[in-house]
Design a protein around this nucleic acid. Structure first.
Length: 898
RNA sequence: GCCGCGGUGGUGAAAUUGGCAAACACGCAGGUCUCAAAAACCUGUGGUGGUAUCCCCACCUUGUGGGUUCAAAUCCCACCCGCGGCACCA
């Protein structure tokens, strides 16, 4: 043991083990890093995504990201801001539940252990989080408000239950959101996803699609993130157009097909229509009686063909259906539609390239001007009628012409000769006037499936009363039979709870849990195994499930689904602002009855107003379209509810993407590849400061980087040299000091400050290394105060070492992390000498150092240059045509080429 | 296909308001120290060629090909490649 220690000392010369323990204790006792509500200093809310505390502990990626955030937070704090830099736990989730099932333990216990481990590691890494504000999404005091938000969504008509074909993972036994399915496989376990129809809570995020796009304007997200979100929402502008169906009326008296198109200008070119295999019209067709079948020439074999096609489409996976390379398939329905602009009869086909979930599930096909329609027309020999004349020659039998900004309309009646752009405006006006269509927009964004059939999540705080449901359904179906008593009761309830009665009618039997009864706590259970029936394990806990109807008082049942993982992280950045008040929300609850308006957000509007918005949000690209979009949506919703401050409609101002660290083989780290870097091993071997500084030196903060242990040793060398400099010069006899040292140090202050502000940590460290090299090679002696400045500049990166050097070597007062960030002093920034670059025809021929005042004067520079031996020879026998002079920088002689 | 980002030594990279390409670090080579090794320190290190084995000089070099300019890694045009996201979205 002793030998090992000694060996380490000899080898590293950094006694990090000793200081880390010592200073960690000091910091803990003094709690240096608290953000102070309402402090007069400028506030800065610096947020890094909170982790899911998995069993394997903090991995190197977390360490990297959080170090980056911590450096920024530490520097900002030293520079005089009141910094809020909090941390918490996004602890609901499947891995914990699965682990708990495997080991027959409680998820609560497993989660607590993981959280403790993460926290220990973060403290070791010296992340300057404000631990007073720690939050955990799985504590009832926290998810009480996650549930409250859900209830508000319901009350505003943005949450409803509906039978939805969902992506079902047979391994996890859980319904997945579209976002959780990657290439037709479960994002988590990789199992092939199948489709199931289940009753699911749906949140209407699509209602906020426009607002979510528009809100981006106000933020300072990097382009990549903005683009990803806009792309994900996928807004298209166009028109909805009604095509009547020839000789047909559906059971609900509809005799038309409505389509969405972005190209209403090409309406005259529509030669057929296509509906999705899930379209409701198909059900009608298949249930035709014999007479009707004959009318539409629907022979037995044709009906069979349609049935087969639909059956095949059902079995196809989304991936197969989306395969662009495959040939178009389809089947004719026997029905015809009437093109509303030219009264032409066009056939209606079924094909799986039309998606039920986008637009109206039906399209008008314009094969001359749409690639897919063209392919379909070619396959089934349907007519291709051009309605735009391209600028040049175009062979429509070879390819569709899809441009909008060039060409002229033809074959199109009153819009002939217009450009497609102009034609779109004309035709929309026409459609609206004739009431056969209207301007419309569509989004790729789908509504958010909010139900999960698992134990370890927030219970959805809803109650279902079968009795009420039955009554409401009867009532709405047959208004005359309305039961006055039930209606009055419903009305009374609706008024008391502030819910629009129509919402209750649209969701028969569903009521939110009374807000004063929140949280709906997860019951302690024996078994967490998910069931194969599509029901949550909570469904088996009968005494928990059983409750009273908030409306009629009769027997009712709780919703047993839980919320998705994203729910808790939707508002966590708000929770940090009032984390201390979250802790005693139990007390608030017991305080008589709270009014429904007294939610925790409204109550804390002042403190939210102080801290919001998040100034810098650091996180991974994988959350750009999911977490970031969901949480912006929830914030916008709360904003519209008027429970958060009105000053700024977005939660986050700036978004920074962090990079990824690959294993030393250049591959993504994974256990199977055995290339995982464990931060614990590294700090034990090299110390926390070396690890932190290395992580920041590896490359640009947002880049993908490869782990290189040798480079880490290089950083270690730098820290050793740095501490040697401070140690030797702290005791140095200070007689030989000149200004050169101070000039270098103050220039470094400028550089490091700017670089940290731009998250350009690698160049900040490079500059410090360069500075150190210069000090050594020029054998400069630094003033004590300059040594102090160097320590402060390094402090955000290497907090332990710099504290040691500051307090114990320079003997300055504790703590370096509470010192003010150095400012570059003008008197040290005045440059005495300039290097003039001498070029001939733009090629470097020499450099001449001269007094900076001289270097600004063209004639004098020319004189000096012409005298300089090294340069002079290049100018002999040359005819100078022109001289380009940049004062203080460069002189370029343009000479005639021989 | 669409959107976004990128392509610079042996490696990670720096330089992006046009003005010294390769800072800083790794690696490598040589040296000092040592019985030896490690560590540490010092020196060198883009390529090709030239009476180049010493300083020296010329030319070439930032994915490819053009262009603008006194001057281009940086600006413009065309193309190639890589990464990430979306994708039969009407």
């Amino acid at each position: 043991m002793v030998d090992k220690k000694k060996e380490q000392d000899d080898r590293f010369q950094l006694d990090f083990d000793c200081w880390e323990k010592f200073w960690a204790k000091q910091w803990q006792e003094k709690s240096l890093y608290q953000g102070k509500d309402f402090d007069k200093k400028k506030k800065k809310y610096i947020l890094v995504e909170f982790p899911y505390p998995s069993g394997s502990g903090l991995h190197i990626g977390h360490t990297f990201t959080m170090t980056g955030a911590d450096v920024y937070a530490r520097k900002t704090r030293m520079a005089g801001s009141n910094v809020l830099f909090p941390m918490g736990w996004d602890a609901f989730g499947l891995p914990t539940e699965n682990y708990a099932i495997r080991t027959s333990r409680k998820p609560q216990d497993v989660s607590r252990e993981n959280t403790d481990n993460f926290k220990r590691q973060m403290k070791k890494m010296a992340f300057s989080f404000d631990w007073e504000r720690e939050i955990n999404t799985t504590t009832p005091n926290y998810y009480r408000w996650t549930q409250w938000i859900f209830i508000q969504l319901f009350k505003m008509g943005l949450a409803f239950k509906e039978a939805m074909p969902i992506n079902w993972c047979p391994d996890c036994k859980i319904g997945l959101a579209n976002e959780e399915v990657v290439d037709d496989r479960c994002e988590r376990c990789g199992a092939q996803v199948s489709r199931r129809k289940l009753n699911q809570w749906i949140v209407k995020i699509t209602d906020y699609a426009d607002q979510l796009i528009k809100g981006l304007e106000k933020t300072d997200f990097i382009d990549k993130v903005k683009a990803a979100q806009v792309n994900w929402i996928g807004k298209s502008k166009g028109a909805r157009v009604k095509f009547s169906i020839s000789d047909f009326q559906s059971s609900d008296k509809k005799n038309y097909l409505e389509v969405f198109t972005t190209r209403p200008d090409t309406l005259w070119g529509a030669t057929f229509m296509v509906i999705s295999p899930e379209h409701s019209l198909i059900g009608e067709i298949l249930s035709f009686d014999l007479k009707t079948r004959n009318k539409f020439e629907l022979s037995k074999s044709r009906i069979q063909e349609i049935e087969d096609y639909i059956e095949r489409a059902k079995r196809k996976s989304d991936l197969e259906r989306a395969d662009l390379a495959k040939e178009k398939t389809g089947v004719f329905t026997g029905l015809y539609a009437i093109n509303p602009v030219n009264r032409k009869k066009i056939p209606i086909w079924i094909s799986d390239f039309v998606l039920e979930s986008y637009g109206t599930g039906a399209i008008m096909a314009v094969p001359a001007h749409d690639e897919r329609d063209w392919q379909f027309a070619k396959k089934f020999d349907l007519p291709i009628i051009p309605v735009i004349k391209p600028a040049g020659n175009w062979d429509f039998s070879q390819k569709a012409y899809t441009e909008v900004d060039r060409g002229r309309m033809i074959n199109s009646d009153f819009i002939d000769n217009f450009t497609p752009d102009q034609a779109i405006k004309k035709i929309i006006a026409f459609l609206e006037k004739e009431q056969i269509g209207r301007k419309a927009v569509n989004y790729h964004l789908r509504d958010w499936i909010f139900s999960r059939q698992h134990y370890w999540g927030e219970p959805i705080p809803m109650i279902f009363c079968a009795e009420c449901a039955q009554n409401i359904k009867v009532k709405t179906q047959n208004w005359k039979l309305k039961d006055k008593e039930i209606f009055e009761k419903l009305k009374e309830y609706a008024t008391k709870e502030g819910i629009d009665i129509n919402i209750l009618i649209n969701n028969p039997g569903w009521y939110p849990v009374l807000e004063e009864d929140l949280p709906v706590e997860l019951p302690q259970v024996e078994k967490y195994e998910p069931t194969d029936t599509g029901e949550s394990p909570l469904a088996n806990i009968l005494n928990w499930k059983k409750t009273k109807c908030p409306c009629c008082g009769g027997e009712a049942e709780r919703e047993t689904d839980t919320m998705p993982n994203w729910a808790g992280s939707d508002w966590y950045y708000l929770a940090y602002c009032f984390a201390n008040r979250l802790k005693d929300s139990k007390q608030i609850k017991s305080k008589s009855k709270i009014k429904s308006s007294q939610d925790i957000f409204s109550e804390n509007k002042d403190v939210l107003g102080y801290w919001l918005p998040v100034d810098v949000y650091i996180g991974g690209d994988e959350h750009n379209t999911l977490h970031l979009l969901y949480s912006r949506f929830i914030y916008q919703f709360l904003y519209d509810l008027d429970v958060v401050p009105k000053q700024y409609p977005e939660p986050y101002y700036r978004r920074i993407s962090h990079g990824v660290i690959l294993g030393d083989d250049g591959q993504r780290m994974s256990k199977s590849r055995d290339n995982v870097i464990n931060p614990d091993d590294k700090w034990q071997k090299y110390g926390v400061d070396t690890l932190r500084t290395y992580l920041m030196f590896m490359g640009p903060f947002e880049a993908t980087m490869v782990w290189n242990e040798n480079a880490l040793k290089g950083v270690e060398r730098f820290l050793i040299r740095f501490s040697n400099l401070i140690k030797t010069q702290a005791r140095e006899d200070k007689k030989r000091i000149d200004n050169r040292g101070s000039c270098l140090v103050h220039q470094l202050v400028l550089k490091v400050t700017k670089d940290i502000d731009n998250f350009s940590y690698n160049t900040a460290i490079a500059a410090m290394m360069e500075n150190l090299n210069t000090i050594f090679s020029e054998k400069l002696i630094l003033k004590r105060e300059d040594l102090g400045i160097l320590i402060k500049l390094l402090a955000p990166f290497a907090p332990y070492l710099t504290e040691e050097l500051w307090c114990r070597v320079l003997k300055k007062p504790f703590s370096v992390h509470q010192q003010s960030w150095p400012k570059a002093q003008k008197k040290y920034l005045i440059v005495q000498k300039n290097t003039i670059i001498v070029q001939i025809n733009g090629r470097l021929k020499g450099k001449i150092d001269m007094d900076s005042s001289l270097s600004m004067d063209k004639d004098r520079v020319i004189l000096i240059v012409k005298k300089d031996l090294a340069v002079k020879k290049h100018l002999l026998n040359q005819k100078i045509k022109k001289i380009v002079f940049i004062p203080g920088k460069l002189i370029n002689f343009v000479v005639l080429k021989k």
